[in-house]
Amino acid sequence: MATSDLNQFLENVNEKVLECTICFKRLQNPKSLNCLHSFCLACLEDWVKTKGKLICPTCSKSYPIPEGGLQKLPPNTFINNLLETIEQFSGKDQIKCACKKRESAIYYCQDCRQYLCLTGSEYHNEFRLFANHKLHSMEDVRSMSPSQMTLLHPPQCLQHNKPLEFYCTECKTPICMHCTITDHNAWEGNHKPISISKAFQTFKETSEALQKSAYD
């Protein structure tokens, strides 16, 4: 799957990545279910009290409550990392370079995920191994929206650490190749994975149709 397809898909749908679909606010202490949908821990606890059991608010799948309570559910590390990154970039304090001199960073390497000062960036560019790495000025990074910042690190599957190349139309979530064989098995007929590019096209057509109907 082409990277541009994933980027296009994310650009159109990831405005909701940091939003809890229960409270519709910025996720706080996000916890993930096996279906990969994530919610605020507090919201999920209130949801379970209301429903009497753990049912995913998005896809309605039912899960047993872990021993020790919902706080034992796995955290969404991707969202936690993104939230921490946004907080860092939006902070007032200057971010230090990864070098030993710890000078103020003026660049951010998307591939190394490191902050670099002027000297550090010059050394960085001298190595052929880093020749194709993408450097962003700190001014550009600080002005990025959450959607743009997500594209700095396209998310991978939380279970298999593989690129999200497909979209499960049943669970309404991006999945990887391994997911199509395991949790979202298309052969059993329970799920209907489609390519990210096809999902993007579907979202685009639906969006255009809604916009057109709104003006008619």
Rank of each mutant, 00 (worst) to 15 (best):
S213P: 05
Q211D: 07
P154E: 06
K31T: 03
L82C: 03
T119V: 10
T202Y: 15
L82E: 05
K51H: 09
F78A: 00
N14A: 13
M177N: 06
K172M: 13
E170I: 15
T169G: 04
M1P: 10
G189D: 06
Y63Q: 09
I106T: 13
H124G: 05
M1C: 13
I194G: 01
C59G: 07
K61S: 11
K96P: 01
Q88P: 01
D5E: 12
L82Q: 14
E165H: 15
S137D: 06
P64V: 07
K16G: 04
V141Q: 00
D93I: 08
T3D: 12
Q148Y: 02
Q94D: 07
T3W: 14
D140Y: 07
F89P: 00
I106N: 08
T182D: 10
N80F: 04
C117Y: 04
P66A: 04
S197A: 13
K25S: 10
A209H: 01
C23L: 06
E103Q: 13
S147G: 04
E103R: 13
N190T: 10
Q8L: 14
Q88D: 09
A131H: 13
M1S: 15
P146A: 07
Q28R: 15
T206A: 10
K96L: 09
P154F: 06
A199W: 03
R102A: 15
L36G: 00
I22S: 03
Q88S: 11
S104H: 08
M149T: 12
L6Y: 14
L18V: 01
H133R: 02
H191L: 01
S32M: 12
A199R: 08
L83G: 01
Q211K: 14
L158T: 11
L82F: 06
N81M: 00
H153C: 11
K16S: 11
C179T: 02
K92Y: 06
E139G: 07
P66Q: 05
G120E: 05
S121F: 05
I65G: 08
E208S: 12
C171R: 12
N161M: 13
V17T: 09
K25V: 00
K31W: 04
L36V: 02
Q201K: 14
P154I: 01
Y215C: 09
A42F: 05
E15F: 13
P75N: 14
L70V: 03
A98L: 03
L54P: 02
C168N: 06
S60G: 01
S62H: 07
K72T: 07
L129M: 14
K51V: 03
N81F: 00
T206E: 11
D183I: 13
R128P: 12
I55R: 02
T169I: 05
L70A: 03
I175T: 08
I65W: 10
D111T: 12
L158V: 12
K96D: 00
H178L: 10
N161S: 15
Y167M: 02
E103Y: 03
D111E: 09
C176V: 02
L41R: 03
P64A: 09
P74V: 01
T169H: 02
E67S: 12
A42N: 09
T58E: 08
L54Q: 08
S4K: 14
S197H: 13
Q88H: 09
I22E: 03
C20T: 06
D216I: 11
L70T: 06
K134Y: 09
F200Y: 15
K192D: 06
M138G: 00
Q71A: 14
